[in-house]
């Protein structure tokens, strides 16, 4: 199941809801699988926070972090067509184990 996700991602942008229907997996479980894959370095998590030190003057002040939209994208190595051979796991050094729920 997890190994089918990169192949599905390569078809184009999608949402967790859409993909869960396609893979016949519960949305919540799929979200956890994506977090697992992000931790493994198979996909990259994208967080909407701007990284700015302060929010002064921003029309989105304090809102981007309060209502996070989490996105994931394939990392460069995974963008190649799936040969079904897998291969060596990616280097996990420096991959953050932070979950998007802030834990």
């Amino acid at each position: 199941m997890i190994r089918r996700i990169p192949a599905e991602l390569r078809r184009g942008p999608t949402t967790v809801g859409e993909l869960s229907r396609k893979l016949e997996v519960e949305q919540g479980a799929l979200a956890e699988m994506l977090r697992f894959m992000a931790r493994k370095g198979l996909i990259r998590a994208l967080h909407p926070e701007c990284g700015s030190a302060g929010c002064a003057g921003c029309s989105y002040a304090g809102r981007c972090a309060a209502s996070p939209v989490t996105g994931y994208e394939l990392v460069a190595g995974e963008a190649k067509p799936d040969t079904g051979q897998g291969g060596k796991p990616p280097d996990r050094s420096g991959v953050s184990a932070r979950r998007s729920d802030g834990v």
Binding site: T14, L34, V69, G71, Y72, L74, V75
Partner: peptide, 11 residues
């Protein structure tokens, strides 16, 4: 360069 596809988790 190639563009990576995206999957979004919607609130």
């Amino acid at each position: 360069e190639e563009v990576a596809p995206l999957i979004m988790e919607l609130p």
